[in-house]
Amino acid sequence: MGSKKVSLAALLTFIAIAIIVLYHNISPYITPSELLNMNNAYNVQVVGKMSDLRVRDNVTFFKLTDGKAEIEVIYRGKVQQYDSEVVVVGDWDNGTLYAEKILRKCHTEYTGG
């Protein structure tokens, strides 16, 4: 009986720790409409679809939209336009999102197993 209680206590403690660790290791996804309400924000993860892609001297400009609002994104480097949603990680400053990374939303484009 005693060892069972110890096991249960260990498991519960572990779950509690896992939840705390999880809480400190998440960052919310933001939509372009939410971002427009902020003046500046650092290291944000913005989800949306790309449009109006332009490339000039190795710098890419494009618009990111959530269907309601759109924002201007600048990325140093080339990137192709994806059909699916992307996550843009970067800094939001005075109406422009300076992208550090552009991630495709995991590989769920394969919608199978």
Binding site: N25, I26, Y29
Partner: peptide, 28 residues
């Protein structure tokens, strides 16, 4: 094993709403 299961399950569910950093899995 239950601990491992719960860690992966929590991370997966959380990932549906927010972005979960890789460090979460490294720590847990």
């Amino acid at each position: 094993f239950s601990s491992a299961l719960i860690v992966v399950f929590l991370g997966t569910v959380a990932n549906l709403i927010v972005n979960v950093e890789r460090s979460y899995y490294l720590i847990t």
